[in-house]
Design a protein around this nucleic acid. Structure first.
Lengths: 123, 123
DNA sequence: CCGCATCCGGCGGGATACTG
DNA sequence: CAGTATCCCGCCGGATGCGG
């Protein structure tokens, strides 16, 4: 049963992983944690536009997948730090490739969209 | 405005790109088209579990973004072929890194999930 | 063969308020 | 500070039927 995993197969576990990777927030979090350990509100501040609910959910999923660690320090008030695991660090590298691709090729995409929309408008 | 794009900024165009990239179907399509030009139903058959509606929508978005080309041959019945653009090919490479990462690290993730769930169950 | 139009059910995710 | 809990709404995506 799926000895060599294949993302093209339905029901293959890799599809579950793809769902995770294909979450823009997860990508941003992974990418940002590559810069170092961070606290909850630090992530919330840096990743503009994410809600605390979604941040919380996403962090929990990433922790479950063994991609990040969650460390609680019994201070008052509580301090919680998030960091990449070795496994998470390998993923963060390929995730970084995606975000950097987005930043690098933004102009080309915007141009393509403009051309496409212009062609479609005059019909 | 946004001279150097930054994915961490809300409202930055790169966020739109991230939304595209963070679509598991788009990733699979890009990755699959890397193998060569393909017809609609060929993609539909190979990418198990995708509906024709979603396939159609995703292809249209990818075309608008200038990542793939859509060529119609006026045969009867109509033949439509999809292929990567040069821009799309560069993205397909990084997309491939993601899918291959998923296939390679599947075992580690499944193990992490099992450990996490086991720890949470006994509470 | 390659789609588009329509209906519709589910859930992802925002806003808000409350704990430890 | 770092979350949980609820409500609620939009829209994603499945199913079906039709058209070039």
């Amino acid at each position: 049963m799926c000895p060599a995993y294949d993302v093209y197969e339905d029901r293959c576990p890799t599809r579950l992983v793809l769902d995770r990777l294909a979450d823009k927030w997860a990508l941003l979090i992974l990418d940002h944690l590559a810069e170092g350990t961070m606290r909850f509100n630090h992530l919330r501040r840096d990743i503009k536009g994410i809600s605390q609910k979604v941040l919380s959910q996403t962090l929990k999923r990433l922790e479950r997948d063994g991609l990040i660690t969650r460390t609680v320090y019994p201070t008052v008030p509580v301090t919680v730090e998030y960091a990449l695991t070795p496994l998470g660090r390998t993923l963060a590298q390929t995730a970084a490739a995606l975000t950097h691709w987005a930043e690098s090729n933004m102009d080309a995409i915007l141009a393509a969209q403009a051309a496409y929309d212009a062609a479609g408008a005059e019909r």
